[in-house]
Structure formats: structure tokens, C-alpha cells
Design a protein around this nucleic acid. Structure first.
Ligand SMILES: [Zn+2]
Length: 314
DNA sequence: CGGCTTTGACCCGCGC
DNA sequence: GCGCGGGTCAAAGCCG
């Protein structure tokens, strides 16, 4: 075992030793000058390397957080599409577990909107020749997302990775909570709108209705591309595809379970669950799923050893 | 100073 | 036509 992972052991020892020296640097300078002075340069070098590594790890952590946000968002979108497809395919079927899950959110009230086709506009607003009735043919592409937040969150600003600009708020007839209207901040290049309203019975659940799709990547996903080579080296690990695939299935299953469990647990009137906690939960589950995967361990070990080896040999 | 939220006004479809 | 209810506008104000 030791011989196979000699590089990792060496690097770990080096980092641990440097940390020790860093903590006990003032005492050593007081004790033996020459040796410490001779080693101080190497310690400084290692400290610099460690600081650099720490910065890089911070950047990667940010990137991973953004990827996680994007993944959560994609998961929400997929969940909504799944609900839509299921309700469309089997509109007459009752759900598997009707009491726990959502009621009948999108079984019949969306097709009446789809029927409204803008045919023969009768040349209204013809002075705007640039405004083309091209995009609103039939596909408004509405999608719903159900997010659990705290009941005390009155601002109703759901941070889902995109930047929204609120342009209206109305009170509706059959819901005591107001409904907020948002537009994408990249208007008008991105005409995505969303409506956010709390659920009627459960104030902890907000229903976000997205219509349209973004034609730009997330504003939090901007890339300086200065240190992209490291990211490329990390993503070019040969076992990454299989890793993603295996982890993906596990994560999806875990998400479904956790979501149903949360919906089941919402009867206990526990308003402490909010989205950061859910994200934390997801992170933990993803981490556990990843660390349980031997392929991921091997890939990670290979990546780290290769990175440290290249850094050492630099 | 620019972008965002607030909030009443305004518009428009729909039913009576 | 008129009231109603949902969607949008835009002036005013807030904030970093
Ligand atoms: Zn957008």
C-alpha cells in the first residue's frame, strides 16, 4: 500500500511538515539560526506554494459551488418536465402516493393556455416592424419549480443562479400571499419571466413558474480563464465520465428520496428547512456518494498526485 | 450614479 | 358597458 501511493504519502508529509513549521516558526528562529535560516527559504517556498494551492482550491470550490447550483437548477427543471410529461401521458391516472406529494399542480390547467395561438394579429402595433411574432408561436415553455424556503422569507426573491429584476407584485384572489413577477436582468436579450408565489396551504413552499429559457449562461458562471489549464487538467481525467455517470444516478435517487421525505415531513410544521440547508444536504450526499465510489477515489488520487507531481517538478 | 425594489396606475381579456 | 382579476409599466425611492 505504501509503495503504490508513495507520491501521495510524500506530498501529504510535506504539507503536514510545512504546516508544523509554520506554526512553530518563531520558536525555531529563536533556537537554532543556521539550520532554520537554511530551511526557512524552503519553508517560505512551500508556504507560497501552499498559499497558491489554497487559492486554487478556493477557486475550484467556487466553481464546484456554481456547478452545484446549476445542477440543482437542472434538477428542478427536469423534475418539472417529468411532472408535466407524467401528467400529460397519464392524465386520468391517480398518482402513486397522492397524499404525500403535490396535489394536482399541472394536470389540466395548462392546455388551455397552449390553445391560445396568436393567429392573425390583425396588424396591431404595426409601427414596430422589428417586433416579430416569431418566438411566441406556441411554445411558451412554461416550467414550474417547487422550492422550500422559510415562511419568514417575505422578499420572495429566489436565488436560483440567475439575476432577476422584480417588476410587479399583485395579490391574487384565492391566495393570501402575493405573487411576484420577475424578469431576467439580461433584458431584453433574454426575455425570460418568472412568477413566484407561495403555496396556498403550505407557506413554506414557493411555486416559481418560469416561462421561456435563458440564452446565456449563469451570471455567476463567468470565467476569468486565467487558471483554466488546471481545470482542464482536472476535467481531463480519464475516469471522469464514468464517475459522473455513476454518481449521477446515485444522486438522482437520493434527491428523489429526500424530496419525498421532506414533503412528508412538512406536516410536522417545521419551518426551519430552507434552501441553503437543502443545498448543504445535497453537498453532503454528493460527497458521500462520491467518496463511496472507488472510481472517484482513484480518479481523485490520480489527479491530485499528477497535480502535485507537476507542481513539485515545476 | 446606476441598478433594483416598491407600489399604485394602467391595460386587457372575460363574463354578466 | 362594466366590474373583476391578472399582468405590466413606470415614477419614486432605496442602496451600494
Ligand atoms: Zn436570462
Amino acid at each position: 500500500m505504501n509503495s503504490s501511493s508513495s507520491v501521495d504519502a510524500l506530498d501529504l508529509n510535506a504539507s503536514a511538515r510545512s504546516l508544523q513549521l509554520e506554526t512553530t516558526t518563531p520558536k525555531d528562529t529563536n533556537g537554532s539560526n543556521l539550520v532554520v535560516f537554511g530551511r526557512k527559504l524552503s519553508v517560505k517556498e512551500e508556504t507560497d506554494a501552499l498559499v497558491d494551492e489554497l487559492n486554487r482550491v478556493n477557486e475550484e470550490n467556487k466553481k464546484l459551488t456554481q456547478m452545484l447550483t446549476a445542477m440543482c437548477e437542472s434538477y428542478n427543471a427536469l423534475q418539472s418536465q417529468l411532472v408535466d410529461l407524467r401528467s400529460k401521458n397519464k392524465p386520468e391516472k391517480f398518482e402513486l402516493i397522492p397524499t404525500k406529494k403535490r396535489k394536482s399542480e399541472s394536470n389540466g390547467d395548462d392546455d388551455n393556455k397552449k390553445n391560445i395561438v396568436g393567429n392573425s394579429e390583425s396588424s396591431s402595433t404595426d409601427e414596430e416592424s422589428c417586433k416579430k411574432p416569431r418566438e411566441e408561436i406556441i411554445k411558451a415553455k412554461v416550467s414550474r419549480a417547487y422550492v422550500r424556503t422559510d415562511a419568514s422569507d417575505t422578499s420572495l426573491v429566489v436565488k436560483d443562479g440567475y439575476q432577476w429584476r422584480k417588476y410587479g407584485q399583485k395579490v391574487t384572489r384565492d391566495n393570501p400571499s402575493p405573487r411576484a413577477y420577475f424578469k431576467c436582468s439580461f433584458a431584453p436579450s433574454c426575455p425570460v419571466k418568472k412568477k413566484v408565489q407561495r403555496s396556498v396551504d403550505d407557506q413554506c413552499v414557493v411555486v416559481a413558474t418560469y416561462e421561456g429559457e435563458h440564452n446565456h449562461l449563469l451570471p455567476s458562471q463567468m470565467e476569468a480563464t486565467s487558471g483554466s489549464s488546471r481545470c482542464v487538467s482536472l476535467s481531463s481525467v480519464p475516469a471522469s465520465s464514468a464517475l459522473v455517470k455513476s454518481a449521477g444516478s446515485t444522486i438522482t435517487l437520493d434527491l428523489t428520496k429526500s424530496k419525498s421525505g421532506d414533503d412528508e415531513a412538512r406536516n410536522h410544521s417545521k419551518p426551519k428547512i430552507e434552501s441553503p440547508e437543502i443545498k448543504q444536504y445535497l453537498v453532503e450526499h454528493m460527497a458521500s456518494s462520491l467518496t463511496k465510489d472507488p472510481n472517484f477515489t482513484m480518479a481523485l488520487a490520480a489527479a491530485i498526485s499528477g497535480r502535485l507531481y507537476s507542481t513539485n517538478s515545476k
